[in-house]
Design a protein around this nucleic acid. Structure first.
Length: 513
RNA sequence: GCGGAAGUAGCUCAAUUGGUAGAGCUCCAGCCUUCCAAGCUGGAGGUUGCGGGUUCGAGACCCGUCUUCCGCUCCA
């Protein structure tokens, strides 16, 4: 990576488009911001990544099962999870400083300032009088009462404005309070706008009250609401896990950096239910297991690191991210969170259903604690693509662009070429295709010089190219050319399936875990 | 969302001060047959992102809009 990181990233983006990995959504209509489509090769790579994750989690763990919960969920789900209230912020910009603020925070800070003034009055009075009756002072002192009235007035107005969804009134409060931007010191504000994290739509053919449905902003809640169904029907014993992959939707304020932050994205999550008090052990176990999984891809251990959260979300008692060195720096790839019993307790409360587990060893019931692993499939895709993308300078001065994808994840496992388009070589190549296609996705190419065809496959990331030449007709062998080394082996045609199976299967990856 | 920059063929880019939209590569058909891309012949492909405006005339100037990039801002 001798060039500037931005250029490197740009090259990856244009390479992705040129070779059928990623297209911008609705491109012929000028595109849709922060939404991307996966092309013929991207869909394969993505599917393979998903499959490797699924096998590592579900197939390799007897106590983990997978589900596929719907994207639509009962609206109360999102009240219980906290998404409805916690991600509904009124935002305002200062036109001079270009800074954005949460309008409610600005007003709260203003109120806090007035409260400080009251406290100062109280402190002063305390020093002045011997037998100081603080409660009396607060309720009678003219200045304090005036301040307090102001606070009550502001709070009432704000409460009403938010309840009515009256954003103009929220702005008016900021104007009336003469709140200034702490950076620019100006009162030059934009209108207040509502920020909603969740996309909403209407269920049923008739619009109206109560029919608002959200597109899920995370897959986790589909697991939590099904936890008891799975536990009972699968006769699962704690500790056990439920895995799920699927689309999630978030209205990000700023969605950028290609597929790193999209409005529609795919998560791969596993919620691990364990006995209260054991959650830290499992948290450490999963941190370790997940890092190992990433390392097994062979993209360089130095590209991964943990970032432990210091400031924890209200529901968590431990949290860490696995970060990857993207072309634009170390960024979050996967989160491992110890979520306590927060989610299940919330759903108990909102649904009125008991979500407890009877532990025969304890002889008692409890709400399990949860350790979550949550990885972004699209981010994982980008991490693999950016680590695999290489612009090589060869010894003879030529350059080549190669995607050194892990063979098990590569969209196309092998390409078959006739060295020349005559003498029966194409026919033999077709026969080989027909022999291999039952095991793997393979492709055929007879156009242009063979070296050129090798380069084309390098750019797609195909790990093996099989070339049929005149010797093949005589002794039934072909050359197999390796993508990364460009070395060739001569192999019997009958041995090709075994050769490929051994090298492109996920088994070798799974064995490293 | 704010500020800055950009948008011309699938890709990379041209097009004097406003005066007929071009090239290379790619792609397709054919020729050639050579194990590490760019031989030969022919061909396809553009309402210059979109919509208005100024002008005799706009790829170029003005306004709006969409998208992308960079920097802010936000992110359980």
């Amino acid at each position: 990576m001798s060039q500037k990181p931005e250029d490197f990233f740009k090259n990856i983006i244009s390479h992705s488009k040129e070779y059928g990995y990623i297209f911008q959504s609705s491109e012929i209509y000028d595109g849709l911001s922060a939404v991307y489509d996966y092309g013929q090769n991207g869909a394969e790579l993505k599917k393979n990544i998903r499959e490797y994750w699924w096998r590592a989690m579900v197939q390799m763990h007897e106590n983990i099962v997978g589900i596929d919960a719907a994207i639509f969920m009962h609206p109360t789900t999102w009240k219980a999870s906290g998404h409805v209230d916690a991600f509904n912020d009124p935002l305002i910009d200062n036109k001079d400083s270009k800074k954005r603020y949460r309008a409610d925070v600005l007003i709260e800070e203003h109120v806090a300032k007035i409260e400080d003034k009251i406290e100062k009055e109280v402190e002063k009075a305390k020093k002045r009088f011997e037998n100081f009756d603080e409660a009396m002072f607060r309720s009678t002192n003219a200045r304090v009462v005036e301040y307090q009235n102001k606070i009550n007035d502001i709070n009432n107005r704000f409460k009403n404005a938010m309840n009515d969804g009256n954003l103009a009134e929220v702005k008016q409060i900021i104007v009336d309070c003469e709140i200034v931007d702490p950076v620019s010191g100006s009162r030059n504000w934009t209108d207040v706008r509502q920020f909603n994290l969740m996309f909403s739509t209407a269920m049923g053919s008739v619009d109206g009250e109560g029919s608002t449905i959200y597109l899920r902003p995370e897959t986790a809640q589909g697991i939590f609401v099904n936890y008891l169904n799975v536990q009972k029907t699968g006769r699962m014993k704690i500790p056990f896990g439920i895995a799920q992959t699927g689309k999630a939707f978030r209205n990000e304020i700023v969605a950028r950096q290609f597929i790193f932050r999209m409005r529609e994205f795919e998560q791969m999550e596993m919620q691990f239910f364990c006995k209260p008090g054991t959650e830290k052990e499992w948290y450490e176990y999963w941190k370790d297991a997940r890092l190992k999984w990433h390392h097994s891809l062979g993209l360089g251990k130095e590209n991964y690191k943990f970032h432990d959260h210091v400031k924890l979300a209200f529901y968590a008692n431990a949290a860490s991210d696995i970060e990857f060195q993207f072309p634009f720096g170390f960024k979050e790839l996967e989160g491992i969170h110890s979520r306590t019993d927060y989610d299940l307790k919330q759903h108990e409360q909102f649904s009125g259903k008991k979500l407890q587990y009877f532990d025969p060893e304890e002889g008692a019931s409890y709400v399990p604690y949860v350790v979550e692993t949550s990885v972004g499939l699209d981010r994982l895709f980008l991490s693999i693509l950016s680590a695999a993308f290489k612009e090589e300078k060869l010894q003879d001065g030529e350059t080549r662009v190669v995607l050194s994808l892990p063979p098990a994840l590569a969209p196309i496992k092998a390409a078959v070429f006739p060295l020349v388009k005559k003498d029966g070589l194409p026919e033999l190549a077709e026969k080989i295709i027909n022999q291999l296609k039952f095991d793997h996705i393979v492709t055929y190419d007879e156009k242009d010089a063979v070296g050129r065809r090798y380069r084309r496959q390098d750019a797609i990331g195909t790990p093996y190219c099989i070339t049929v030449d005149h010797q093949s007709l005589e002794d039934g062998t072909v050359t197999v050319r390796h993508r990364d080394t460009m070395q060739q082996d001569r192999i019997k045609i009958e041995a090709l399936n075994d050769f490929l199976n051994e090298r492109v299967s996920m088994k070798s990856l799974l064995k490293q875990l």
